[in-house]
Design a protein around this nucleic acid. Structure first.
Lengths: 156, 156
DNA sequence: TTGTGTGCAAAAGCTTTGCATGTTG
DNA sequence: CAACATGCAAAGCTTTTGCACACAA
């Protein structure tokens, strides 16, 4: 844990951004909040609130679910984390700083999530916003299917 | 309630489809199941399970939530109803027979839902499925924003 | 010091499940 | 008549909330 890591620079950066965000909004800089952010940026891929909570508990870091949820919301508000709703419950989160816009392909059999980019989405947003007189600020495009040969649960 | 309605033909059709679906799968044809389907096809737009339940109760039709949920699942399975997850909870449903594929624009302020069609979605599905070796069977594209001047809650 | 954040547990909200009863085939 | 569907209420699961205590400013 004491060896410098490649992602340390990114972590320093997002910690700084979060710190400023808290300052600007007169929120307090608590160790829990920074610990949660750091934990998120040391993880890869998508995760849910419970997994994050468990993971911090396993490292003997004392947090409550309430704080995890609270902090996740703060992080979503300052664009350091993105929240997704792939299934009906169990929201998924992912770190988002420095990531370009992308959408998701979800395997309905094994739950695997792939990412992809397509500029046509932006075109559709612009066109439909204009056409329907909507101010489109966000979107979510999920493709559902299965990952074919690679899917461990497809051999049913 | 005894006057023939314009939508009666559609209702007869979907009742027939549902009936066949139940037969084919050896599910029983209960009055509750048909009553729920009929109620759905007499309604317009999107609705949630609870609203449907309440609506049937108000007409003094005796159903339970369990049956409503159970039947909704059956209807989703035979493509007579489509299920959407716009927010984090409260799944929304809509009748889908004879409807062409469409996606949704959701006002985050007042909850209004508009529909739109764009052929580029299909292109994206095809391309990404091939590219990422995914068998894409479904998708959901939601655009979030607000309905501008028309939105009653935007004047905040 | 003072008010905001935290931990804990209980509550909330939507959906599912277990069990006894009723009904379809 | 035998299996399946229903109604009811209780349980499940994720997320939120209330309250007392702790701590950042």
């Amino acid at each position: 844990m004491s060896v410098p890591r490649a992602e340390d620079a990114v972590i320093q950066e997002v910690l700084g951004i979060f710190s400023k965000h808290l300052e600007n909004n007169n929120f307090r800089k608590t160790p829990e909040r920074f610990a949660i952010l750091e934990e998120i940026y040391r993880r890869d891929d998508h995760f849910d609130a419970e997994a994050l909570y468990i993971h911090m508990k396993n490292q003997n870091y004392r947090v409550s679910r309430a704080t995890v949820y609270n902090t996740l919301e703060l992080l979503v508000n300052c664009d350091l984390v993105k929240k997704h709703q792939f299934g009906k419950n169990l929201a998924q989160y992912e770190k988002s700083h420095g990531y370009k816009q992308h959408d998701h392909l979800i395997c309905v059999d094994c739950g695997k999530v792939l990412e992809f980019c397509d500029p046509r989405i932006q075109q559709i947003k612009n066109m439909m916003g204009e056409l329907l007189k909507f101010k489109v600020v966000d979107h979510s495009l999920n493709l559902y299917g299965n990952c074919d040969g690679a899917c461990p649960k497809t051999q049913k």
